[in-house]
Design a binder for these strands. Structure first.
Lengths: 129, 129
DNA sequence: ACCGGCATGCTAATAAATTAGCACGCATGG
DNA sequence: CCATGCGTGCTAATTTATTAGCATGCCGGT
């Protein structure tokens, strides 16, 4: 059975989803080795089955094993996750979030990325008007 | 007792931390009414006590009740949460994240915010050089 | 001074998450 | 053809999270 209405993931479930999203797709073995403080292989597969059941993951058989991937598009889930962080920590303001990131002690952004980012903003300004 | 090494929060704990971070501080009653699918008041207070015990929240007595607030600075935790989202969904690229946000269907940013953001980027470019 | 309301701390029950182990099936190579 | 390795599904046990209820203490009003 599958339900989706409540995006209520447990701790382990979230960890696994993060891994799968970060990699795009992953086998049970990969998830297992990426998991922090990893439980048994068996436990990982049980979690994967739950996530499939809940409708968050799908899988395809490839070379005798299952390769899992998210059912919802990464960009969409990412946007919503980003919004949540913005709302929770930066009063919904992208500007404040970027400012915080830029103030990070260690080096963050390459000049190239900054340039592209600036271009992006300019473009949005013109379009928005 | 307090431990901190593993920032492993349960579902409810995370929900509560989000509420407290979003508001800066909150009483048990406020947390209770903000919680989605709220349990009893009693349950909420138990969770708050656990979070204090784990070292994520502190409280001060005010007007006979406890006002809870995070022990770690919001900006710092926010930055780390932001990084996590970037790494998980946008290959660590702030640029890609902003792009995704700008593409959001509904209205997102005011022209003013875009302007300030652009300024911020420019400033970073000059400083970084 | 007494009562009612509200907030706390504690304790114990219930529900959910997390884990491990086992049995079966398919492919590979001796 | 049979044994071995690897992957799966299932089931059941344990640990953790979540919840509710109760006893106590403080404050303000009658």
């Amino acid at each position: 059975m599958a339900r989706q209405p409540i995006p209520t993931l447990s701790r382990r479930e979230r960890q696994i989803m993060d891994i799968v999203y970060a990699r795009g797709e992953a086998s049970a073995a990969v998830v297992h080795e990426q998991l922090p403080d990893p439980p048994s292989y068996s436990a990982v597969r049980a979690l994967l089955a739950i996530l499939v059941d809940k409708g968050h993951l799908k899988y395809r058989a490839e070379q005798g094993r299952y390769i899992y991937s998210p059912t919802r598009r990464r960009s969409q889930v990412g946007r919503s996750a980003l919004r949540r962080v913005l709302d929770t920590f930066f009063e919904g303001s992208l500007e404040k979030a970027v400012a915080a990131l830029l103030q990070g002690s260690d080096a963050n952004l390459s000049p190239e990325e900054l340039a592209r980012l600036g271009q992006l903003i300019e473009q949005a300004r013109h379009e928005g008007r």
